[in-house]
Amino acid sequence: MAVFADFNFKLLVVEKLMYDEGTLVPAFSIDARMAARGIPDPTSHVFENDLAYTVLDESRAFFEELEIGEELLASVDTLLVDGGLQVYYECSPVWDGEDDLFDVRSLDDLALLPNLREVIGAEELRVPGALERLAARGISVS
């Protein structure tokens, strides 16, 4: 199985496969996980326990341990970089996009996506030389 160097890059891939295409199953739901623990309102829980603007431990553990096979990785042809991704809610239910919590810090994981052809919102990547690196791999940006 693939090992990702950058957790936040992996989240972009998870968004595509789990929440956009529905091919990586079962989909993780922090609401369902918390409800199963008797916590009906994740937002209140997060604020009451000073967990706002962090990746919840339960979410981080799930996504870090999540294995994505080579066949699924090879199916990824487009990634979206956007502050409103579902996977970000699943990690941090009250995150507002105003900090660097989910900034991709490395593009080393591009090698795991042999058929990636486009990155939408690539200008939001905070990796030095990101646009040039994508272009050098023949990946279009928009």
Results as ranks from 00 to 15, higher is better:
25 V>C: 00
29 S>I: 04
71 E>P: 01
77 D>K: 14
21 E>A: 11
118 E>L: 10
46 V>M: 05
122 A>G: 10
90 E>R: 06
33 R>Q: 09
40 P>E: 05
94 V>T: 15
30 I>N: 01
98 E>Y: 14
116 L>R: 08
7 F>N: 08
142 S>R: 13
104 V>A: 06
133 R>H: 13
24 L>V: 01
125 L>N: 02
43 T>F: 11
20 D>R: 15
23 T>Y: 14
4 F>N: 01
71 E>C: 06
112 L>M: 02
99 D>K: 10
126 R>G: 06
89 Y>C: 05
43 T>L: 02
96 D>C: 07
17 L>Q: 03
27 A>Y: 02
100 D>W: 11
69 G>K: 00
129 G>V: 15
91 C>D: 05
126 R>F: 10
68 I>T: 00
56 L>T: 06
27 A>D: 05
81 V>I: 15
27 A>R: 07
113 L>G: 00
58 E>P: 01
16 K>S: 11
37 R>Y: 09
130 A>G: 08
34 M>H: 04
97 G>D: 07
127 V>S: 08
36 A>C: 04
1 M>S: 05
56 L>W: 02
55 V>G: 00
14 V>N: 00
51 L>C: 02
67 E>N: 01
55 V>H: 05
77 D>S: 15
12 L>Q: 14
56 L>V: 07
53 Y>K: 04
30 I>R: 02
122 A>C: 11
5 A>G: 04
131 L>M: 13
24 L>C: 02
132 E>V: 15
40 P>Y: 00
60 R>Y: 04
116 L>N: 07
128 P>R: 15
102 F>V: 14
83 G>A: 09
99 D>L: 11
80 L>E: 12
34 M>D: 04
33 R>C: 03
42 P>R: 02
96 D>Q: 12
24 L>P: 00
40 P>M: 00
104 V>Q: 06
103 D>P: 07
121 G>E: 04
7 F>P: 07
77 D>Y: 05
43 T>V: 11
105 R>K: 12
87 V>S: 04
89 Y>T: 10
130 A>S: 12
97 G>N: 11
10 K>H: 09
58 E>D: 05
3 V>F: 05
88 Y>Q: 06
35 A>P: 08
30 I>C: 03
53 Y>V: 01
115 N>K: 11
33 R>M: 06
101 L>K: 08
97 G>C: 09
122 A>W: 14
62 F>K: 01
